[in-house]
Design a protein around this nucleic acid. Structure first.
Length: 318
DNA sequence: AATACGGGGCT
DNA sequence: AGCCCAGTATT
């Protein structure tokens, strides 16, 4: 006999078989298996948590960890980052990817200084209003930096819920209203419990309930999992759009130009930029995009006819 | 709802 | 070669 006889409204998200059992098992597992990450250390700051969350937007933990340590050592407080040169910020960001995040993180630091006296706010709406902070990061900072209740729904949690609750191999490409309601229903009512659940459910998705080869035998909720009960069926969603090949894309070209300018000691002449990509039209398009994004700066030409390198020069924004 | 946006490691 | 990674902003 089912443990939960509560009737489900038509169209509502499927009820969790036993929310308390799921939460208890996952949190207990987390108490034993949580990774020892620096942004979880007792001496972490709210700013450190925010920095880690921005770095972790689409960049794996293993690559973020050393970058985060160096970054926090150099710019421990929002005011420190706010006062830095964007060029230094972009160089420190190095190859974490999506360098616009670095620019936004600095804008965020400046906004924290100007709007909040240099202290990271704990209010969700105020967090959401900061540059580079979206719904996930706002919820994560609230939970992990301030221990407050929030619905943290990242790719890991979405996958765990898709499997345990819905019995699907993978979540839908974009979150649905019902999915958010199901996530909300699983979050404990109290601040401490909710924050613990957020960290634990994310960790389970990262270490056990992984996208590729889930380690179901090691899972604390293997006997409560709807997906496993159904025989671990394959993904039912339409095949993802064929991912754009990396070679030859604007993203690759932009990345090469940024790599060139990160390493350049002086503003680079157009000939140096041309050397990183042969297709003139594509290179110019990408350069224009980087200028528009504020990732690259054009330096005024001081004198004409200065040999082969006459013409505009480019550098990271000062 | 779709797209653009880095970069690297794994299968 | 394709997939995945603690997403966000813009169209």
């Amino acid at each position: 006999m089912p443990a939960d006889p509560t009737p489900t409204a038509p169209g509502a998200a499927p009820a969790v078989p036993d929310a308390a059992a799921v939460r208890g098992a996952v949190v207990a597992w987390f108490d034993v298996h949580a990774r020892d990450l620096p942004w979880r250390a007792p001496d972490r700051t709210a700013w450190g948590v925010l920095v880690s969350e921005v770095m972790l937007q689409q960049t794996p933990v293993v690559r973020v960890e050393p970058a985060w340590r160096a970054w926090m050592s150099r710019w421990p407080r929002p005011a420190d980052l706010a006062a830095a040169s964007p060029a230094d910020v972009l160089r420190a960001w190095d190859r974490l990817g999506y360098p616009r995040r670095a620019l936004r993180l600095q804008e965020c630091a400046r906004a924290v200084v100007e709007r909040h006296g240099g202290e990271v706010p704990s209010d969700e709406a105020e967090l959401l209003a900061l540059p580079g902070i979206g719904s996930y990061t706002a919820a994560a900072v609230r939970a992990f930096a301030f221990g407050r209740r929030s619905v943290v729904l990242d790719t890991n949690v979405r996958r765990v819920l898709a499997r345990v609750v819905e019995g699907a191999a993978l979540p839908a490409p974009t979150p649905t209203v019902g999915e958010r309601a199901a996530a909300e229903a699983l979050v404990p009512p109290d601040d401490a419990g909710a924050a613990r659940w957020a960290a634990a459910s994310m960790e389970l998705g990262a270490l056990v309930c992984t996208a590729r080869a889930p380690r179901c035998p090691a899972c604390p909720v293997r006997d409560l999992c709807a997906w496993r009960a159904a025989g671990s069926p394959a993904d039912v969603h339409a095949p993802r759009r064929r991912t754009q090949a990396w070679a030859g894309t604007d993203r690759q070209v932009r990345g090469r130009i940024m790599a060139l300018l990160r390493e350049a000691l002086e503003p680079a002449p157009a000939s140096a930029v041309a050397a990183v990509w042969p297709d003139d039209a594509q290179r110019e398009r990408c350069l224009a995009g980087l200028l528009a994004d504020g990732l690259v700066e054009r330096v005024a030409v001081e004198r004409a006819g200065d040999g082969d390198d006459a013409g505009p020069r480019y550098r990271l924004p000062v």
